[in-house]
Nucleic acid binder design. Sequence first.
DNA 1: GTTGACAAACTAACCAGTTCGTACATTATG
DNA 2: CATAATGTACGAACTGGTTAGTTTGTCAAC
Lengths: 220, 220
Amino acid sequence: MSQVKPARKDREPSKRPQDPDGTRQDILETASREFALNGLSGARIDEIAARTKSSKRMIYYYFGDKEGLYLRALENAYRTVREGEDDLDTDGLPPVEALRRLVEFTFDHHHEHEDFIRMVMIENIHHGEYLERSDVISGLNVTAIDHIASIYRRGVEEGVFRPGLDPLELHWQVSALCFFNVSNRATFSKIFGRDIGTTDHQRRLRDNAVEMILKFVSAG
Amino acid sequence: MSQVKPARKDREPSKRPQDPDGTRQDILETASREFALNGLSGARIDEIAARTKSSKRMIYYYFGDKEGLYLRALENAYRTVREGEDDLDTDGLPPVEALRRLVEFTFDHHHEHEDFIRMVMIENIHHGEYLERSDVISGLNVTAIDHIASIYRRGVEEGVFRPGLDPLELHWQVSALCFFNVSNRATFSKIFGRDIGTTDHQRRLRDNAVEMILKFVSAG
DNA sequence: GTTGACAAACTAACCAGTTCGTACATTATG
DNA sequence: CATAATGTACGAACTGGTTAGTTTGTCAAC
């Protein structure tokens, strides 16, 4: 039940007493941080409101209820990250280099967007029921598979990748290696007494991930 | 709400009116399920108490407070899973087969212990602060690295594995592929519209995981 | 260009249900 | 009897959500 606002000519961030778009955005960003940090049940509406330039009443005015706010925060996280993925360009590169770039980029991208990773973890704890409720997110992700699929296809055509692999499974493998690196850093580091978050360690893990994927798809 | 109370005058000789160990265990198992399902903040003490054969009073009697109960549930999850890992025996096998077995076993073991995976996810959301507070868990895990380390060492000695790899990083890679498979099943399946939880799909993903690891460590 | 009516944006105080935790009494056990 | 184990009832604080009302913007009619 989103409120439809009259289109506003974009002006610089308004400091006018009433600023619907700004207020809405401010709430969404604050809520995103709080949900990523504490989860759906752990986050507190009062706390979100306090950190906002606005008030609790405005949260309910714009987002209906807590779950509505969470859903928008989830969509916001997916959208932000997917938009960032557009920065990856592998068009000129030969397949092997393109795939290497894609894995490196994915690794770094996940690394830089910990809040997104946390939102996905939280959503998985909830069995993905809010993601299912969103008609925004699914549209964002179908294209994510296209990139790796086209690289793989080129590689097979040029004879450097072996045929018969499923691009979705490739994407799964890349995701697993890059996601786990962020999602399980706390427990992994604490259990084995070695901080894997250092730049040195991260570079090694990234190189390993690239090598694993390349050796897996390689035709040789 | 009709309270169904256990019959006080039961003649079962096995069930003594007071059963400290049984009560404690019953509470712990119930709490483990609830925390794995709903997280620390999402779980409700009253709900846990209701599902118990005992009462809320007993929870506080034995576990102090909610966080204490959560910590014990976390330790319980780690202990249960680590004990199950003892079932893996690769002593007679040549290194390649041993490593294959280890990956397959880890994959299946994670698959079968979803509640453990969920507890680890939840604990990571909490930045591992409860795990850090536990002096039980760290002791359980150091040995987990030994198995893969010894297989790897044998492989290097026999010339079938390439030298220079870090067993902890190997363990990291195996964990990533096996953990992600369970932790992100909900969002992954829903986003790409394909249920990767089917036995058919799981077997493919498992085979891929094995192949990736083997190709990565192979000397060839 | 002032006015006034209406809608959008916003505020403060409050409410009702929930939730963790406890006080106190009672029963079993050794 | 002394102590451990357990049942009952309750309360203080928290928390999601609402009620009732105020301020600000828009725009047509003077």
